[in-house]
Simulated assay, not measured.
Amino acid sequence: MHQPLTAGLGLKPEHYEQALACQDTGLWWEVHPENYLADGGPRLAWLDAIRSRHPVSLHGVSLSLAADAPPDEVHLARLAQLARRIEPALISEHLAWSHWRGIYQPDLLPFPRTHAALLRVAENVARTQEALGRPIALENPSHYLHLGDHEYSEPAFFAELVRRTGCQLLLDVNNVYVSARNLRGAEAPAVQAYLDDYLDAFPLHAVAELHLAGHHPDPVHGEMLLIDSHDAPVAQPVWALYQRVLARTGPVPTLIERDAELPPLADLLAERARAHQALCDTLQEEPACN
């Protein structure tokens, strides 16, 4: 039987051998299911091997739940097949769109949070959950500019989705911080006000997973525009915000995301250990974390 989930890492092919040998308490691994939607092959064999020793989560990037069309039925069937095979501890997706009239865009794109969008996303989430036979967790996006025509705040939009579909939420702490900086500027009081308002309104009771990641300033605009790059260690302000979130939610499975400029696995495990300890400190039950 696996230990309860504490902190996890994204599974990268470069780290398969070492990941298979890891024995850290509470460790779990996250993968993008799009890389494993096959009937066989070496990647799927490796995923089976990892799953035999550790819990695994599926973090999708292409369901395009905010598009004006239902999720692709073939893709959903493949995803459900993979979920049945590895029995993931968690399944998550982004609140975004990437598919338009048969063309996939290589990005997770924003949309105005209108009532019409709410109905559309809720229907797509319901279709997805019916296909999978379980709830999924929706992730909050990073914002880089102001969009007009919003009828809901982001926390209110998520709260309505939870109420209408029974879905769970994935709160990406780095995304909240990046959005605060990009939408409110670099002045500390304005950023703090955004963070306070966001956390006060967000339906934290529905959060099933947390993400932590690195970011960097835009090459052209510098500190005025932060990019959710996943290519650097988690920044100190994000760690501080993470502690604030844990104080409200209690311990929630937490993933360290790193998708580029990959360091040695030992460095990632050290970051993961910091999140693991924060969760144990929140839990205040040392035997469960040793």
Rank of each mutant, 00 (worst) to 15 (best):
A137C: 11
A38S: 15
Y144I: 04
G26L: 01
H143N: 06
A67F: 01
R84K: 15
F202W: 05
E93C: 02
Q277A: 11
P141H: 03
T282A: 14
H115I: 04
Q105Y: 15
H215Q: 13
A278T: 13
A49T: 12
Y152T: 00
L95A: 04
R181Y: 10
R244V: 09
V125W: 01
S98D: 12
T249R: 00
S62N: 14
P71M: 03
L283N: 09
F202Y: 14
L226G: 05
L95S: 01
Q129K: 05
P71A: 07
R258N: 07
L37M: 09
P189N: 10
A288D: 13
V74Q: 12
A232I: 03
V238L: 05
L283S: 14
V173W: 00
S64Y: 01
P33E: 11
N35K: 09
L226K: 04
Y16G: 03
V207D: 01
P13H: 12
P55S: 09
A188G: 03
A89C: 09
H146M: 07
L171E: 00
L226S: 07
H276W: 15
L265K: 15
A122K: 00
D218G: 05
Q192P: 01
L63D: 11
P251D: 03
G26N: 07
L283H: 14
H216Y: 10
D48P: 04
E154A: 00
N182L: 03
R164E: 03
T249N: 03
C167E: 00
G40H: 13
V74N: 09
L225S: 10
E93G: 04
L170S: 06
G102C: 09
I256L: 09
D281N: 14
E209R: 07
L90S: 05
L283G: 09
Q277W: 15
L269W: 13
L82S: 13
H143Q: 11
A89F: 09
E17C: 06
L246V: 11
N124E: 05
E123G: 07
E261R: 15
I103C: 07
H94M: 08
P110Q: 11
P110M: 08
P42F: 12
S92A: 13
L161V: 05
L109T: 10
E14K: 14
L5S: 11
A7C: 15
A96K: 08
G40L: 09
P110N: 08
Y194K: 05
W46V: 07
G10W: 06
W29I: 02
G222H: 15
E73G: 06
A96N: 10
W239V: 02
A117N: 00
W239I: 00
L145T: 12
Q243Y: 07
N35M: 06
S52W: 10
C289N: 12
Q168V: 01
V74F: 10
L76H: 14
I227H: 06
A116W: 11
R164K: 13
D197Y: 04
T114I: 11
R43G: 04
L147H: 14
L147W: 11
R120S: 14
A232H: 15
Q192W: 05
Y242F: 15
A235Y: 03
E34F: 13
L161T: 00
